[in-house]
Design a protein around this nucleic acid. Structure first.
Length: 772
DNA sequence: CAGTGAGCGAGCTTCCGCTTGACTT
């Protein structure tokens, strides 16, 4: 039995460290936090200085019991969780749960998983830093208070099941405000003039006019004026320039770059990275540090030296730019720099390649460039055509890697300019003035939202991906699928001595996969911003973080900090609860031409809807749900009235009525009491679907059911069906499904055997409410 | 889920941050 027990947070880390420490040490993992505030009620004794009520959650009991046993057998326990606020709290919770004395238990930390770093840590144990633990308790308690008091207000004032929190609500706010900016944006057109010139050698030079014209007339007039003009070069300016590599990856920059270059979602990036980490190919993937260990710096240098030559190597140390960074880990890098490829599938290989290149490039020399600006005369003295050229003199890090950009339009491809002289005459082969339009700010992608959150210091590497998934799960935000519209524009072209007008058209406004707010998201956000300005402020987190830092330094008491927040927050919240109106996002669309009653779009108990008539009328109002893609803010009266044509009767099939309608989960065809979802992707739409198409869908569903069907027992209640699912045979009864054990033959099951299997199946995991 | 949209009321929902598997019909 080893004398020493070392506890870290991650099992993959435990394995590596175990190898470095040898047989006197047993290294185990806590799998993250092992205790948390109790899940029911607030979990905080507010009357008693906000004393937190901690418990070991059910799913953590096993780990804690195992660690308890090992603790008893060990002579010395080393708490080796990460060196940050959360890590310190994990160490403290471990000490509490394992009955260790916090005053004497060894606490060790390291920022990198290398043998010298770990040996050094073992030689320098310290005690648990209670101030740091208290800073974490303040963070935890604040988040619980905000989340568990704010959310119920939304249940009451908007819709059940909604949520609000310090991080998610601000993330939604960013998206809502961007969308409002876009809606209020008015595109302004201008004219961009581009010239294509040739010199006496026949080499071509592309240049753009130094300023743009606001009107069609000015643009046309300028081109007319260029007829017969003799163009010559006014000036040539050549300057050396440098480009430096980007810092190694953090979680946030990895997510951004994998999104730009590999089109991964942030969740996908994390799950692929997790696999690379578990198989030992990369360092830890949830980090805010750009730091590389000395070992990494040395091996990177050697690798660059061997692959590209000494000239390409330049050891660099990066420091973090983000304010809230806690830097408990290294940057994300390959574990072994000389391993050029790793991973078991295409995605792992691609992501590893990205990480390898980024890390290596970060240790390479600057690229040296030569930038040339060439100016060409025009008939108007104050205007010049400008051509830009860029030549790479020394590739440096560009040999390996260049960071992507978020600009979707970097159409300025700068290449080499032909050798030219000042005063040289140029022929204009074509001059064009094209109408362009100012662009609204871009919608957020998952990755650009992460970038923004990080800049604001909101959220942590471990929560970026879950936050994005939460705000979509709550239906505050969805991925856009905007078609775009046709837009006409004009272009004037001067060739020879003629100015010709072209009428052209383009698609504008198409946007796919970007984050856009739903009606619920908008209404909830407006409600929270109106009533809870402080918490919705973009700097709220940064402000409380400063106070957490004060607690960590021992200059502030954590319960006093919480109290100074709560004593304002809570009464204000009670006031809003009692005195604010229900948030409905109501909008009057106009009058119903048939009845003359008002038509409203608003959020109802079950989501966005249209209401005809007032609630307190003698005659009850009529209601209809909005369809997917329709929004309270932009639905027209005509579109709203269309919704009341549903359900549409289509006819009969097999003696049963067939109709089309929209339900909670989208459009469907109803056949008697059977329901078949429509396929909007294949062009199905409840307003226009024909009986023929509906029958086609019904037949397909019947066929699919037949293929799934194995047996049915309906002579007695409950009705039991044996079906073949995607994951093998299962029993369906009522709304529940039961897996059939492998040793049973599904085709020969009797009703009794089915009941046996059903009874033997444990209830699906659901927290049972327990009365006091 | 296949409708509903008022109010009643039991029972329920909810936060952020640290970690992985278990599970899916």
């Amino acid at each position: 039995m080893p004398k020493n027990l070392v506890i870290v947070e991650s099992p993959a880390k435990a394995k590596t460290i175990g190898k470095y420490l040898g047989k006197d040490f047993q290294v185990e993992s806590s799998y993250g936090h092992i205790r948390d505030l109790i899940a029911k009620d607030m979990g905080i004794d507010i009357e008693n200085n906000y004393a937190p009520k901690y418990a070991v959650p059910k799913e953590k009991k096993e780990v804690v019991n195992k660690l308890k046993k090992l603790t008893k057998d060990a002579e010395t326990v080393w708490l080796a969780s990460d060196e940050d606020r959360e890590g310190e709290a994990i160490a403290w919770h471990l000490a509490e749960a394992l009955n260790l004395n916090p005053g004497t238990t060894n606490r060790i930390v390291f920022h990198e998983i290398t043998k010298p770093a770990i040996e050094k840590a073992i030689q320098n144990p310290r005690r648990i830093d209670q101030n740091l633990v208290n800073a974490q308790q303040a963070r935890r308690v604040l988040d619980r208070l905000v989340g568990f008091e704010l959310s119920p207000i939304l249940w009451k004032k908007v819709q059940r099941g909604l949520s609000a929190g310090r991080v998610q609500s601000v993330a939604v706010r960013l998206i809502v405000e961007r969308e409002k900016e876009i809606r209020n944006f008015k595109a302004v057109s201008f004219f961009r003039v581009v010239g294509e010139f040739t010199n006496s050698d026949g080499k071509s030079i592309k240049a753009e006019l130094s300023s743009r014209f606001e009107t069609e007339e000015e643009a046309k007039k300028f081109l007319e004026g260029c007829k017969g003009h003799s163009f010559h070069i006014n000036s040539i300016e050549t300057k050396p320039a440098k480009k430096s590599p980007a810092a190694p990856f953090t979680t946030s920059t990895l997510q951004q770059e994998a999104s730009r270059k590999l089109y991964f979602s942030v969740a996908q990036t994390m799950s692929v990275a997790q696999k690379l980490y578990e198989s030992g190919h990369i360092t830890y993937m949830r980090t805010d540090s750009v730091n590389l260990s000395d070992l990494a710096l040395n091996t990177a240098r050697k690798e660059i030296h061997d692959q590209y030559g000494e000239k390409f190597a330049q050891t660099r140390k990066y420091s973090t730019k983000s304010k809230g960074a806690q830097e408990a880990h290294e940057a994300i890098r390959p574990t072994f720099m000389d391993k050029h490829s790793a991973g078991t599938d295409a995605n792992q290989k691609k992501l590893y390649d990205l990480i390898w290149k980024r890390t290596i490039a970060s240790q390479m020399s600057d690229a040296e460039l030569e930038r040339t600006v060439l100016r060409i005369s025009t008939p108007q003295k104050e205007l010049e055509f400008v051509a830009r050229g860029e030549v790479i003199k020394f590739e440096g890090f560009l040999k390996v890697y260049l960071e992507g950009t978020d600009d979707d339009e970097s159409d300025e491809q700068e290449g080499m300019l032909p050798a030219s002289e000042k005063g040289e005459h140029l022929n204009a082969s074509e001059l064009s003035a094209t109408q362009r339009f100012t662009k609204h700010p871009p919608r957020f992608t998952e990755a650009s939202l992460v970038k923004k959150l990080e800049e604001l210091g909101i959220g942590r590497p471990s929560t970026y991906a879950p936050t994005i998934s939460t705000i979509q799960k709550r239906n505050y935000v969805e991925k856009s699928d905007l078609e775009g519209e046709k837009r006409n524009y004009v272009q004037y072209v001067l060739t020879g001595s003629q100015v010709k007008q072209n009428k052209l058209s383009e698609t504008t406004g198409a946007d796919k996969g970007k984050l856009i707010p739903t009606d619920i998201g908008m209404v909830v956000n407006d409600f929270l911003v109106e009533h809870f300005k402080d918490i919705m402020d973009y700097h709220f987190t940064a402000n409380v973080e400063e106070q957490f830092d004060e607690i960590a330094r021992g200059r502030e008491q954590w319960d006093r900090m919480i109290d100074s927040f709560y004593k304002d927050f809570h009464p204000h919240l009670k006031d809003v609860e009692e005195n604010s109106d229900r948030a409905k996002g109501e909008r009057l669309l106009g009058q119903d031409p048939k009845s003359g009653k008002p038509v409203y779009a608003r959020i109802g108990r079950y989501g966005p809807m249209i209401q005809i008539g007032e609630a307190d009328d003698e005659e009850k109002p009529e209601f209809a749900s909005l369809m997917k893609g329709q929004h309270i803010n932009d639905i027209t009266l005509e579109e709203a009235l269309e919704l009341f044509k549903l359900p549409r009767k289509l006819g009969e099939f097999e003696d049963l009525p067939v109709s089309a309608n929209v339900g909670r989960f989208g459009p469907y065809v109803r056949h008697g009491n059977n329901f078949v979802s429509m396929k909007p992707k294949e062009g199905d739409d409840p307003m226009s679907i024909t009986l023929e198409r509906a029958i086609e869908l019904i037949k397909a569903k019947q066929q699919a059911d037949k293929e799934k069907f194995i047996a049915r027992f309906d002579e007695e209640k409950p009705v039991i069906e044996v079906l073949n699912g995607r994951y093998g045979p299962y029993i369906k009864s009522g709304r529940k499904n039961y897996k059939i054990p492998k040793d049973k033959e599904p085709a020969t099951l009797t009703r009794e055997e089915c009941l046996e299997i059903m009874n033997a199946t444990p209830e699906p995991k659901k927290r049972k409410p327990r009365k006091k």
